[in-house]
Design a protein around this nucleic acid. Structure first.
Lengths: 345, 345
DNA sequence: GACGGAGGCGAGAGCGCTCTCACCCGGCGG
DNA sequence: CCGCCGGGTGAGAGCGCTCTCGCCTCCGTC
């Protein structure tokens, strides 16, 4: 745990290169309008001294931080447990890094933390925020929106209905669900059940809506409410079998629940896909490929979602970027899903 | 994506409270040596104006950032896939938040990124770093160490052998492995096999060493090298069954591989734990509790490891903290593990 | 009642950078 | 030949904060 050595300043570089601070600054920030001879001399001095700009001093005058906050609400919930979030984070990180931005991670634990996060964001420590709003009743998104920080949401926030200024990136949950159910119907299945996710999350609601789009007149008992967890999937699957022993297909709102459902179906002596066809959602490799049989599922490009969130935010932040593309304010994006056929349906 | 409003400065607060900047600063930073009347007046002004200190300006003079970098090398690898890292991150986040520090997440993709990370850390943007060094041959830890940034490692770095100044937090991998194998031996098992993790990681090596401590004279064919993934566990388990069909126990270096091994054992017609007892490592709830039968495993408190890493780092950073506790420089910590008995052994 | 000390407060410098503006110089038109 | 324009450069102000230092007040002491 060594102490940091005194770092060279702009002044030092200027002295060494025999120019003024202003010129060094120009070179460091792109070098426009400086003669090539000087640019070279400054570059050399920077190199020799190992000069690294002091970000604090720079931020103080530019009011930019080249940093973006990623806010994840309630990591006790499923977010953190499944790889979904990790993948998204990775996409975000890649995009931010490509644009020399830092990623400040804010995890909240319970309601008390909301104020802290809101204060931090309002404090102008970062240029923007990427927010994962999980629950419909979560007050955090509203707080953040009010803090006046440019924000892009991951997944459609529950209350975004009326507001035009809310930017989010989401998968086409409804369309993906429709595809899945239609695929099952196409296989000749008629008693198609649905294991919902936690219905306080828009993704779960949207997938349920997609199911209903196709199964408008289905027996309501074919729908069992669960919570996106394997255990919840098992429990709900058991309920379904109790209520409707004659079901011949299951569409689970995510892969984890589908894996639980597979276990229960096997226990009950049913064969998959012969007796009951099963489809999941997400296409989490480690889960979907490991089940027995391998899971047919609705794939969403999670990493791309993250990348896109970051891209939208940065574009909104940087006036230069804005000029090229047409829309002044970026608008939300809904990414398509694709059905991945494996063994279970 | 609203633009940020102009924020009140210290000056403004001072004017409103009828005091000097210096006094406001004192109050904002604890309020020692200021009369209660004034403290109250300043607090009120801060409140009314919604004043939030400008961190950039503050850092510029204090040279502190109240920010810590968390460096994760190669997220393409298993790190990100399993909940292990997420839990650790959560522990870190909690501890940092409790001490008003921010978490800057740096993910590296491939070797080219190492230079970027090293530069960032050397640039003095953060007060310290928490580094997850996964692979024995990873040059990153060395680079970081050389950058002169106070650092705590997650898991024992491979090259730390000789160096005294390397601080890390790790589980007692070797001891935990010994406990597991002893437990199997205590059940009367004699042909105890081991599925290793990726042996370019110290945790895998240490667990293998623990196995060997107990099984010093075991048939070397009882050891199969794998990679911490479920698929790798399956493959290695099949090899083991080929080589030693008479094995009666398996110690897998983590739960994911153990779950793969369970599948293979079941396929082969063996009963667990009757024919073959199985023990994993980690105690990842979603995995260990969902297997059939539930997995006996070696538990490590992952979140606590994260919390501890952060605590060690902050303690090393803050001279005030150092005074209380005895050691001037914090030293590494190895956390104990506990055997969790479930159905598989 | 004069004096020393301590505690409370304000003035001002300065952290390292960016950015405006004025200056300098060479080349061009009048 | 003088003035003008424009690109290249440097001087200097100032971003919002902390922190040292000196002043001023009020107490206790001889």
């Amino acid at each position: 745990m060594t102490d940091t050595a005194p770092r060279p300043t702009l002044e030092a570089v200027a002295a060494r290169a025999g120019v003024s601070r202003a010129t060094v600054s120009r070179v460091v920030n792109g070098g426009d309008g400086v003669r090539d001879v000087l640019v070279e001399r400054v570059r050399k001095a920077v190199e020799e001294l190992g000069y690294v700009p002091n970000q604090a001093a720079r931020s103080l005058v530019t009011r930019r931080h080249d940093a973006v906050a990623v806010v994840v609400a309630e990591p006790e919930s499923r977010v953190f447990a499944d790889p979904f979030f990790a993948l998204q984070l990775r996409g975000i990180s890649k995009e931010l890094t490509a644009h020399d931005n830092q990623l400040v991670l804010l995890l909240t634990e319970g309601r008390d933390d909301h104020a802290r996060v809101a204060r931090y964001l309002a404090g102008g420590h970062v240029d923007g925020a990427l927010v994962f709003s999980l629950h419909l009743d979560d007050p955090l998104p509203e707080l953040i929106q009010r803090a006046g920080v440019p924000t892009v949401f991951g997944g459609r926030p529950g209350w975004s209905g009326g507001r035009r200024d809310v930017v989010y990136v989401d998968s086409d949950n409804r369309g993906g669900a429709r595809d899945a159910v239609r695929h099952l119907a196409g296989l000749g299945r008629t008693r198609i059940a649905h294991l919902t996710g936690a219905l306080d999350q828009t993704s779960a609601v949207d997938r349920l809506d997609g199911y209903r789009d196709v199964m408008a007149d289905a027996d309501p008992r074919l729908i069992a409410e669960a919570d996106f967890t394997p255990a919840g999937g098992e429990r709900a699957m058991r309920e379904l079998l109790d209520r409707c022993p004659d079901l011949d297909a299951v569409f689970a709102a995510n892969d984890l629940m589908a894996s639980g459902a597979l276990r229960v179906l096997r226990e009950s002596g049913r064969r998959v896909p012969d007796d009951v066809a099963v489809i999941g959602f997400d296409d989490l490799q480690p889960v979907a490929e490991q089940t027995d049989p391998p899971l047919t599922t609705v794939r969403q490009d999670i990493e791309e979602m993250g990348r896109l969130m970051a891209r939208l935010l940065l574009r909104g932040l940087d006036p230069d970027h804005r000029r090229e593309d047409t829309p002044d304010t970026p608008s939300s994006v809904v990414l398509p899903t694709t059905l991945v056929r494996r063994g279970s349906a």
